[in-house]
Amino acid sequence: MKGINLEKLNDEGVESLPSKERRQFLQFGLSISGVFLGGSLLSLTSAHEAQGALNSGKVPVAEFPYSPHYTMVIRQSHCIDCERCLEACRNTNNVPAHGYRTNILERSIPIAQGQRERAFMPILCNHCNHPPCVRVCPTQATYKDKTNGIVQMNPDKCIGCKTCMAACPYNARYFKEEARTIDKCNFCYDTKLKESGGKITACAAACPAGVRIFGDLTDPESEAYKLIHAPGNVLWVLRPETDTLPNVFYLDT
């Protein structure tokens, strides 16, 4: 088979290209790269920043601490799953049977070879300092209260896209069909908290075992403050990998 002898071929060079063709080619390349560069610059929340909201907290939605800065400490080992907190929450906040603002999960924790320990873990909205739900809401129907840091809902503004439900790492939201809005724990802001002068929530008041300790992170006299700052107490938060900076703390002792 006879191959092409490249060495004997003349170099055509780019000089032989018509200048119009060259200009068009350059123009095309520059336009494409320019527009796409513009697209990535103009994208107001680039992929990097979007990830930052969860992983490195680069997009805070508000300044903190608040005053008062409401918090809850949950003494997991005290919980006996009597569910009085759930009942109190339902009755106080008019929660329908198909939903819940707070729940108790049963854990089976491995402690040694072939041995497991049962524990009950109450869950509720963590009123995060970097709440993904607030970040994604297109109409500010859910927002971080600038006074006390509670993640609140304005039901009138909710369009029902349920993105906040998808974004919440704690499964703390549900759609309340009766009111056509997302419903969630607001530390009983408009019910028990108001009645008690900002001292206690319905679930904390109903708990017979002192599991749920509600308080103010900026008040040294608050029991929650003392538990959080007591030397030797090891506290943990749910799903720390999402970097939401929760305001609900768990204590095993």
Partner: peptide, 27 residues
């Protein structure tokens, strides 16, 4: 049709826009 309350979009996307929300920008 996927939204529960689509009629609110017209009002609150304009009256209460959230500039940090990708959904708002995208829509």
């Amino acid at each position: 049709l996927e939204l529960e309350n689509p009629w609110r979009v017209g009002f609150y996307a304009l009256l209460s826009p959230h500039q940090s929300s990708n959904i708002w920008w995208k829509t």
